[in-house]
Amino acid sequence: MSEWIDIAALEDIPQRGARVVKTAEGCVAVFRTASDEVYALDNSCPHKQGPLAEGIVHGASVTCPLHNWVFDLATGEAQGADEGTVATYPARVEAGRVLLDAERLRGRVAA
């Protein structure tokens, strides 16, 4: 059973941008696309741990600010020639609020 927790207002995250949520196990990046979809991924590139929340968001992808790896926000998979996957977490928008699945966030280490 998922347990949705209210993280922030959608407006708190810039369109084509991201904000970070602190958890006991490290930071999760919450992205908002040009069309107001939200995604939550580990804020760490599998290549050199670059902070993905600081990357440029285009379509439903983000480019890591350190070495330009591009990740699909939905699947967390690296695009193009690079290989690697970032963990993703369920996220959704309801009545203008961004919700994350607390159950999955707590289970981050185990997952």
């Binding site: 927790i5 993280i7 922030a8 970070v20 949520v21 958890t23 919450v30 707590r106």
Partner: peptide, 10 residues
Amino acid sequence: PVANLTLEAA
């Protein structure tokens, strides 16, 4: 950070 869940998760 837009939210801090460190207490929540603990």
